[in-house]
Design a protein around this nucleic acid. Structure first.
Length: 568
RNA sequence: CGGGACGUAGCGCAGCUUGGUAGCGCGCAGCGUUCGGGACGCUGAGGUCGCGGGUUCAAAUCCCGCCGUCCCGACCA
């Protein structure tokens, strides 16, 4: 490609709207342009990188025995109504009607359609297992689109669906996908971790997230310093601290006027927050649930919710306290009746002689101890995990990192085949439900995630597997015939050798071309200019490291190819 | 949806407090000089000042409403 013809105009300044590095640089380098919030035009450079990601994904999916097909984006609402997702999916679903008033939607994911398709085409146990996938734009009216391509309302996704006769089969299909996913992300050059994730509303049992490490990541994960344990922060279970004996201090009431928060109590009494006991009030249906955590910790409400699922757990509202006779800000677990369930996080076992609310306005107690002074019905894992907590497998220190979820795989089991009544005919002549798995990869998100991981202050630094072009031939002096001829020859030779190249033949000054080459992030730059030609050399630069070298003009192509081979 | 910021030329911004002529830089077009790390000079094109209403002789500027964008929180590839 001649850059004089490339449909791409780089921006000299950072767009005001972009905050995240990937968003900023993909806009500046003309890979994408925004149409509206969370919806982006993919420009020619972006297309090339996206195609390369797709090619990697296709290769690995095909290699794993999955078969590509494509179901429509425009979907009938009917199957969605049958699975209940027409209502359950909520505002995130892009809904529309055709001229006859029939409900339709833009596909956010395709379990329904795929399951129905497989049921029609592959109705026999002899057909199984089967795994089908597609690479298609997905539509989700996100609450908050963010960070450009990292959370779009329209995004390119590979989604695969496996159908097996039984659980064992599903687990095998899952394993095969798991390994294919590792190869995909390895080939994309991503620094990532695989964590066991919160099953969330997708349901099913086992599921794993593939998380690319990035400072702007929206998802937190914990990792043991010894590297043997990783989990989503929502799913992570730290090792409980060693239990200590109850303290011996007498329980005494102390005046704490106006101190309705842990901080205020700690400040008034001159103690640290961790010696206080935080008493959180919840409603699980009609049931009142009290959750105890040390004062310096937060309750993980997702974990709490899971304990009572499907009953919804809600935090007490202002009115609930008065209505049920609790002094908001001064609640303690002492003297609670049997109608109240008292749950405590495991970490509560590690403390004694607590300072906690006295259940009266402006009053706290010191020296509160379990059993003697209050009751704990059950110890559960209920606290928000934090840095420095202990690894459940070896007691190492847990660290928290940020990441971008680029892949998520689920063992769905019967979750979708059941409501859809998606059956196959088994050997014994009975109808049985398909045991499903589903597997997603965010293609457009990978592009952004890689940009997050591979950039510097000058621009993008694509791994060669994803770069829109591998080598940029920079024509430094357009007015010099010899220089031009050499650059043209090198460019032609590179192409003849199968190297994806651009020739920067624009009438700009060399400085502009260098800056753009760095911004766009071609792995290798070859500069052909008057200065070098006189000495019989060209200059090469490896974008990844900034390393520069020279090569004789005659060996320029070989040198560029060798440098490319050495590039990450 | 809650909290915060913002909307003026393709991009980055000033002007708004104290109403009256719409401006700067980059980019874009032409000419000339320059030419290996985002050159310089001259000339030029390009704007319903987000939209609608109101106040006023007069609104980018003041008032009301709406829309859009970004950032922080609850959802997700």
């Amino acid at each position: 490609m001649r850059l004089s013809r490339l449909f791409a105009r780089t921006l000299r300044e950072d767009p005001a709207e972009a905050e995240a590095p990937s968003h900023r640089l993909l806009l500046r380098a003309a890979f994408v342009r925004k149409l509206m919030a969370g919806v982006y035009t993919t420009m020619p450079l972006g297309m090339r990188t996206m195609h390369k990601i797709e090619a990697i994904v296709r290769r690995e999916m095909d290699g794993a025995g999955a078969q590509e097909l494509r179901v429509p984006i425009t979907l009938p609402a009917e199957p969605w109504k049958r699975t209940g997702r027409w209502d359950a999916y909520g505002e995130e679903l892009f809904r529309l009607q055709d001229r006859h008033g029939r409900d339709m939607l833009l596909g956010p994911t395709h379990e329904e359609v795929m399951a129905e398709l497989v049921e029609v085409e592959f109705p026999s146990y002899k057909d199984l297992p089967v795994n089908v996938y597609q690479i298609e734009w997905k539509y989700r009216d996100e609450l908050r689109p963010r960070y450009g391509l990292l959370r779009g309302r329209e995004f390119l996704m590979k989604d695969a669906y496996s159908f097996d006769r039984d659980e064992d089969g599903m687990r095998e299909s899952y394993r095969i996908m798991y390994e294919a996913y590792e190869r995909v992300f390895d080939r994309c050059g991503l620094d990532y971790v695989i964590v066991e994730a919160d099953p969330g509303t997708i349901g099913g049992g086992v599921n794993h997230e593939f998380m690319a490490l990035a400072d702007v990541g929206e998802d937190l994960f914990v990792r043991c310093e010894n590297g043997d344990y990783m989990a989503d922060t929502e799913a992570a279970t730290p090792q409980a601290p060693p239990a200590v004996d109850p303290g011996s201090a007498p329980m005494i009431e102390v005046a704490t006027p106006g101190a309705a928060t842990i901080e205020a109590v700690a400040a008034q009494l001159g103690i640290s927050a961790e010696t206080t006991l935080k008493t959180m009030m919840y409603k699980a249906g009609e049931q009142i649930v009290v959750v105890l955590v040390p004062g310096d910790r937060e309750v993980n409400e997702k974990k709490l919710g899971r304990l009572y699922f499907p009953t919804r757990v809600e935090r007490f509202e202002e009115a609930d306290f008065a209505q049920r006779g609790f002094a908001k800000g001064f609640v303690g677990p002492q003297g609670l009746g049997d109608e109240v369930t008292v749950l405590a996080d495991h970490s509560v076992r590690g403390g004694a002689d607590w300072v906690t609310g006295a259940n009266r306005e402006d009053l706290h107690v010191t020296g509160a101890n379990v059993v003697r002074d209050f009751r704990v019905d059950r110890y559960e894992d209920l606290a928000q995990i934090r840095e420095g907590d202990r690894c459940p497998s070896d007691g190492g220190e847990l660290q928290i990192g940020r990441s971008i979820v680029v892949g998520h795989i689920y063992q769905l089991g019967l979750k979708y085949s059941q409501p859809l009544e998606a059956n196959y005919l088994d050997e014994d002549g009975t109808q049985k439900l398909y045991v499903m798995g589903s597997y997603g990869i965010g293609i457009s998100r990978i592009m952004a995630a890689v940009a997050e991981q591979f950039h510097d202050e000058d621009g993008l630094k694509w791994p060669k597997a994803l770069a829109p072009y591998e080598v940029a031939v920079i024509l430094a002096n357009l007015d010099d015939e010899k220089v031009t001829a050499e650059a043209e020859r090198i460019y032609a030779d590179l192409q003849a050798r199968g190297v994806e190249s651009v020739l920067d033949d624009r009438s700009d000054r060399a400085g502009v071309k260098f800056a753009d080459a760095d911004l766009i992030g071609y792995p290798v730059q070859v500069t052909v200019g008057k200065r070098g030609i006189e000495a019989g050399t060209v200059d090469l630069k490896l974008r990844a490291t900034g390393e520069r070298s020279t090569a004789p003009i005659g060996a320029a192509v070989d040198a560029a190819i060798a440098l490319l081979a050495a590039a990450p």
